[in-house]
Design a protein around this nucleic acid. Structure first.
Lengths: 336, 336
DNA sequence: CTGAAAGCGCTAACAT
DNA sequence: ATGTTAGCGCTTTCAG
């Protein structure tokens, strides 16, 4: 019952079945044929002893573990959580375990501590969620001796990387707003994490340029929707802004909230478009027009990339998921 | 560079430093004193070889790993994600790694596959997120030979368990609504996962009983906010409902959305109160009155419980986090 | 087909 | 203080 008995080892099984240890190993791994009667005796012994192979010992022999780590700066934001869910899903079918290591902040110390902690483990690969600066910083600290795959972000290094077509998404959203008759589209961006602007912003810029409209200054936001609220309030005072494309849905919700408190009515006075298609976006009032991204698929893709790299299987080193404009109620033609 | 050199082993270090393997081990673990000059030579060798101890081998010797697994049915819902974040945070300072295993559904097969997969690993403990049926089912399948701690849920078994005072929360929310003058409070509940009702529902029931008001039938919802939308639409047609207490914020948002499309204005026609204090609740319009729960703290508490159990440190086996009613704009006195 | 022997990288026990 | 010997649980030669 509560006796903390040591778990049965392969030796116990061998003894009970009356065979040698390697024979048990053979029926376990299927590495070689074993006489049917012995197979049966071994299996019986396994059952009887509730034997489960010690993965640590296996890992020691094989020199590789079935563990990968995901480095992420936050696991509560929807995009992060959904991506991790996708990674786990794909990893599970491949028989790999995923350990989560969160990077507390983009401080060099925190990043380094996270990376070192990951490296200390018997891992066969690392996935970094390059949604933000912390991700970029982590990537830079990982030695190139361990397989790495990166999810999202700008493609700027030669790691296998799964991204979404955020450029096209930003472009589509902006083009759509323009087609509604807005003179221009303002952009509240997600935090920049590299030297260049993020792709959503770049897509927005492209659409504007194509239309011959000078891009107004980008309004940078943090990930915190409260920043969006402040920005929304400020923008509410400016009569020249009739359409805002936000870097993500949470920020868009903040902006709407702020604009509203600043006296604007949405969408009549002000159209707002988000990015991501957060699960609550369709419930929002007015229902949020947005660009859908499939984070779970992104996670799956990233794992596949890593998995190929681990097994040294030649394969394309990049994947790109399409994005999709979802038109709902938060966007209408400008007030006349 | 790209040479896939095998990582240095403790033997390489010993050789380079001109000492024996155990000596290297000793400076590594600090298990015994080593002559200063040798310590230095060893450290130099370690540096030079970029040596990092193989945790697998260590784990094999010590018979224990620094890995715990978290069993959860979904990692994208806010409450789940935040709890996991708390677990990871506490685990990290304790030097433990957190493996996430998601239980695809509450099917016996899926549950069993998740549990078995966890058990196959060299883990020193399991945390199950008992937010739902899948969690309950998983708990039932875990052999009592491995340390377990559970987060949330009804306290009904003798596992170490960290919960939140959801009962008090449900009671407070209901009492508050009643104090506003509502004749009764209807309740849209989260999915039941056990034989008894969940604590939020029980708290609601208690407040009603205390006030001498017969509790109307509970309206069960799924976790999917869309179910809330349907329920909201149905409820909108009933003039006797002026106040609704929802099992969580996402459901509340769905209910509000549905009620609105059913012609009700919120809060004037209908007061709605949620549960959790989802990050977006304060941005919702009208800002959602809710009961705050600190999921991150819950996660931390759960880990501490498991950690004590792993180290066989006697400690209280249960913790309870307080909840807090946050009054915002979605609740007002009933229409007169 | 199967057992004996070796070895994965490390720590613990035992000598010295 | 430090080297030698064992041994963790398993898989992989290597004989037979």
């Amino acid at each position: 019952m509560a006796t903390p008995t040591k778990p049965a080892s392969i030796m116990d099984v061998a003894r009970l079945a009356g065979v040698s240890v390697p024979t048990v190993s053979r029926v376990l791994t299927g590495a070689a044929r074993v006489a049917p009667d012995k197979v049966e005796r071994v299996n019986e012994a396994i059952e009887q002893l509730h034997y489960r192979p010690n993965e640590v010992a296996r890992a020691l022999v094989s020199g590789s573990s079935n563990m990968i780590v995901v480095l992420a700066s936050n696991t509560t934001y929807y995009g992060y959580a959904a991506t991790i869910q996708g990674i786990e899903e794909a990893a599970r079918v491949a028989g790999m375990m995923v350990v989560i290591t969160v990077i507390q902040s983009s401080d060099k110390a925190h990043v380094s501590s996270a990376v070192q902690s990951a490296l200390r483990q018997p891992i066969s690969g690392i996935i970094v969620l390059k949604f933000d600066v912390a991700g970029v910083a982590a990537l830079a600290q990982i030695p190139n001796t361990v397989p790495v795959a990166v999810a999202s972000g700008i493609v700027e290094d030669d790691y296998p990387q799964a991204v979404m077509d955020e450029f096209a998404g930003g472009e589509a959203a902006t083009r759509y707003l323009l087609s509604l008759g807005h003179a221009t589209v303002h952009h509240v961006s997600i935090p920049q994490s590299g030297a260049t602007e993020d792709l959503r912003t770049l897509g927005w810029r492209k659409a504007l340029t194509d239309a011959g409209i000078p891009a107004p200054p980008v309004i940078p936001s943090s990930w915190d929707p409260q920043t969006g609220v402040r920005i929304g309030r400020e923008l509410a005072a400016r009569s020249d802004v009739t359409a805002i494309f936000c870097g993500n849905d949470e920020i868009a919700m903040g902006v709407m909230n702020g604009a509203r408190s600043g006296g604007r009515h949405i969408p009549t006075d002000l159209s707002v478009v988000g990015f991501d298609d957060h699960p609550l976006s369709s419930l929002w009032s007015p229902a949020l027009t947005t660009v859908r991204q499939d984070f779970v698929a992104l996670g799956r893709n990233t794992f596949e990339l890593l998995w190929n790299s681990i097994r040294k299987i030649p394969a394309p080193s990049h994947t790109s998921e399409a994005t999709q404009l979802i038109i709902r109620e938060s966007s209408v033609p400008p007030p006349s």
